[in-house]
Computed example of a mutant assay.
Amino acid sequence: MEKSVSLINNLNSNTRYLTYDAVEQCPICKAKIRPVHLAASLNTSDTASVFNYCHNCNETFITQYKVLRKDPKSSYYAVANIVYSEPNRFSKHVFDERIINLSPQFDKIYNQALAAESSMLDEIAGLGYRKALEFLIKDFAIHEHPNEKESIKVKPLAQCIKSYIANESITTLAERSAWIGNDEAHYIRKQEDRDVSDMKNFIQAIVYFIGMILITEDAASMTPKK
């Protein structure tokens, strides 16, 4: 949704004109919106802030833009891209109760990583997702092999996946997730065409497959009633 506004250069009080794409999601309530423009300010030669109001949650927020002047002699500017909106309030990912009961630490760590990512701490969020993956896989392995609990605890994640996870889909997803997660901790990336978003997708798929196994186990525990 493209809009045009006039804004003031805070450095010299000159008026400039900005054409920009309005945000389509409120960073506070996460609702799809058409924000109400309240004010705008040109901060430097290439950044601007737009002050918005959300009808859904009745809150205000600021969107930062990277701007590009079309003509050095003109007072008209064009937006290059939206940089971010703030405050960006964290919205917790709610996992199925079976997953939480299986691995409460996974639920806690994953959502802490998600909170970091929501705060644009992308360089550390990946490490959090990697740690969450390890807790999920090891807790599931312990669930499947309770007599091997102590051994599972101390094994590296890769060995744990290979030795204790029988489901091929989970094995593939966990192994590839670990590859990406390891890149998040190292100076040189090996999986250059993959990033945290891929790891999150893989982890969500792992959660799905584990959830289906837990549901099947629950169904199998039923006995016929006479």
Rank of each mutant, 00 (worst) to 15 (best):
E2V: 05
S6N: 06
I8H: 05
N10F: 04
N10K: 11
S13P: 01
R16C: 07
Y17V: 05
Y17H: 14
L18N: 03
L18Y: 05
Y20S: 10
V23W: 03
C26D: 03
P27F: 04
I33T: 08
R34T: 14
P35Y: 07
H37Q: 15
N43M: 06
S45C: 04
S45F: 00
S45M: 02
D46Y: 01
T47C: 06
A48Y: 01
S49D: 09
S49C: 09
V50K: 10
N52L: 12
C54P: 01
N58G: 05
E59K: 14
T60W: 09
Y65D: 02
Y65K: 04
K66A: 08
K66R: 13
R69H: 08
R69T: 00
D71W: 07
S75Y: 12
Y77C: 07
V79G: 11
A80T: 02
N81P: 06
V83P: 01
V83C: 13
P87N: 05
R89D: 12
F90V: 02
F95N: 00
E97S: 14
I99P: 03
I99W: 00
I100K: 14
I100M: 10
N101C: 08
I109A: 08
I109N: 04
I109E: 00
I109D: 05
Q112P: 07
A113F: 07
L114Q: 10
L114F: 05
A116F: 04
M120K: 11
L121D: 07
L121M: 13
E123Q: 12
L127Q: 12
L127D: 00
Y129G: 06
K131Y: 06
L133R: 02
I137K: 05
A141C: 02
I142F: 04
I142L: 06
E150C: 09
S151N: 15
S151D: 08
K153T: 12
V154S: 15
K155Q: 08
L157W: 09
A158R: 10
Q159V: 05
C160Q: 10
S163G: 13
S163H: 11
S163E: 15
Y164V: 05
I165M: 12
A166T: 13
N167L: 12
S169N: 13
A174T: 02
S177C: 14
I180E: 08
G181L: 02
E184Q: 15
A185K: 12
A185N: 08
H186L: 14
I188A: 14
R189N: 13
K190P: 00
D193K: 15
R194C: 02
R194Q: 15
D195Q: 03
F202G: 03
Q204W: 03
A205F: 05
V207A: 09
F209L: 10
F209H: 06
G211S: 06
I213P: 01
E217G: 10
E217K: 11
M222K: 09
M222P: 02
